[in-house]
Nucleic acid binder design. Structure first.
Lengths: 352, 352
DNA sequence: CCAAAAAATGTGATCGGTCACAATTCACTG
DNA sequence: CAGTGAATTGTGACCGATCACATTTTTTGG
């Protein structure tokens, strides 16, 4: 144990002494205050560089009213699976990537908190995190971004917050992808390939995005004056199992579709599995497009064509808005980021 | 802007006043000091619960010499891919899961830092993080766990640290899986299935684990007195491309193997792709076992049999050791965690 | 039963920044 | 060139915990 005495890092007063100025002037330089003469600023900066000084984030929090911390709330269940290991959602990964990079650029840090969706003490857990960390902003990810109780708590607490992947007109900075337009574009791309029998596997109705995607599908079909057979709209809940079930029904339909739009990757994987089982060739007999474009899709056989939800970009934007504080999150604001249709190998011309 | 006045969270003195004791007594209760009478402890605890008091982590850092922070260093390159999105490694995810849960249990928080492996300023970045956060411990993940410069920096700084997935006899708390034993067991399982022509695709030689896995393979083959054809040991670098190349060579070999052990999932996926292309059926003609068991493997067709590296468990253990401070990380300690062979659908009896 | 040691509780200083405000220097006016 | 206001720099208090140490209470034992 022991762990010796930790090397003492330089403080703001060490820098001040080295530069021959007051500690407050050093503080001004660090915080890019405009009211410091160039000569002084440079002298201080030199001292900072020479000493390798980096302000202590805890002390900054103590003195000022900012913590330089952004708290990201992720769902714990989504990170778990039956085996107690990661479920392969890459939200955390992507958020680290987009959000943390943005934070780092601005001297902030991102901290994660995993909260159980079902847990009735979710509010308490969030309150504890707020009290302990005093983050300057909170990012809610699905499904927490649909939990208004948490949002209300944040509003009451006065902590700015952003939602990702879900929107609310009344409060919060809502960073979203246009799900309806994306579904519409995906469907249109299938129509463009000559498909007419296009089916849709819906996501869990707990998510607003699910209905938006369904609407996009219907809209595209309607605009193409392509009637939708009742069998073609299958329910689902984003799980592999529900995708399997939907696929079975679609393949058993009297009007078997030549293209399927699945509301997420996992259900699309299930479709590929079932296609294999039913002897349906992809993409010769069947085209498949999925939503989300989680990393694993590149390794499916064949690799999935998918709509990418720009998680990293959304996280980056959410973080940057929270850091800049240009938007009052007590009121609602919506930021729509572009989706992207990644063409891979599960889509092709309609058969015949 | 605006963001109103933040709701004032209760402080230790609020609790003290409510309980009619000194702030120091409250501090003792929080920190589970044994020298507090039961009656007082209960009175204080009641006040804490009623006020919903949670100690401010920044203030704790200021007053004491602990920060209640564990810093996890991940590789930035591993989190990126060509498209600038997550590469699908689930280290971060799993570490959040294992490490953060452990931290939370003890009132700690886990903070991530992404550092470029190749960046010559990696040391500077780590030093800055140390100075800014003063973490109570640092966890190094591959490939940083093989970077002795970072370890030396931590030693000089006096910050306890743990390595995950890689070991060093001289310093650090090294939490590892027994790669050699795992490769040996995987190979043995193939031998047990009657396979004799077992091939191996190696990982990047930058990783110690790579040679350990190769040795395990050789050991198992040697013990079974099963000679290794020169073609069967293919080099690789953990990339899909290198897996493809290796698979092509193996399928073109005059002595085509009936089983392949790939040093990671990505290369195993490549083998499945190539098998499909060459008309080699899995598992009828060819058995495949991979290393790592990243989440996507469940969705390969067929799902991959794999050795799971217990990332979450390793992270949990690393965090708990750093929190407990029983081990002096200035000296070397090694903690070996069990691996697990997950049998899925890419393994079967040898053909004929 | 009282002294001495041990246990329980309280007091004030302190960590390293920022804040509010005071003091100084500078730049314009008329 | 004094007088005024703005820009620049400095001073000391303060955030909310813990630490070291002082004080009070309890326990122990001769």
């Amino acid at each position: 144990m022991a762990s010796e005495s930790r090397t003492k890092s330089p403080t703001i007063r060490d820098v001040a002494a080295a530069a021959g100025v007051s500690h407050q002037t050093v503080s001004r330089v660090i915080n890019k205050s405009p009211n410091v003469k160039v000569a002084l600023r440079e002298k201080v900066q030199t001292a900072i560089d020479e000493l390798g000084y980096v302000p202590n984030i805890a002390a900054r929090r103590m003195g000022g009213n900012r913590s330089y911390l952004i708290l990201a709330i992720n769902d714990r269940a989504r990170t778990l699976d039956n085996w107690g290991v990661g479920r392969g959602n890459d939200w955390v990964d992507q958020m680290l990537f987009g959000g943390m990079m943005e934070c780092e650029k601005n001297g902030f840090r991102m901290i994660f908190d995993l909260i159980d969706t079902e847990n009735p003490a979710a509010g308490k857990q969030l309150a504890a995190a707020l009290s302990s960390l005093r983050p300057d902003g909170v990012i809610l990810t699905p499904p927490h971004s649909e939990n208004q109780d948490l949002a209300d708590l944040l509003i009451a607490n006065g902590t700015p917050f952003a939602r990702i992947g879900s929107s609310n007109k009344d409060d919060g900075i809502n960073v979203v992808m246009d799900d309806m337009a994306a579904a519409q574009a995906a469907t249109q791309s299938l129509l463009d390939l000559g498909h007419r029998k296009v089916a849709f596997i819906a996501g869990s109705s707990d998510y607003l995005a699910s209905s938006a995607r369904l609407n996009g599908y219907r809209q595209a079909m309607a605009e193409a004056k392509s009637p939708i057979h009742p069998d073609w709209e299958q329910p689902g809940d984003f799980s592999f199992a529900s995708g399997t079930l939907a696929a079975e029904k679609l393949f058993a339909s009297t009007s078997r579709p030549t293209a399927i739009l699945a509301s997420n990757d996992e259900m699309a994987f299930a479709v590929l599995h079932q296609a294999d089982k039913f002897g349906v060739r992809v993409p010769e007999d069947l085209s498949v497009i999925s939503f989300d474009d989680t990393p694993g899709v590149r390794f499916s056989v064949p690799p999935l064509t998918a709509i990418r939800q720009p998680i990293a970009a959304m996280a980056r934007r959410a973080a940057s808005e929270l850091i800049e504080q240009k938007i009052d999150s007590q009121q609602g604001a919506e930021i729509i980021l572009p989706f992207e249709l990644i063409i891979r190998r599960t889509t092709g011309p309609a058969p015949e």
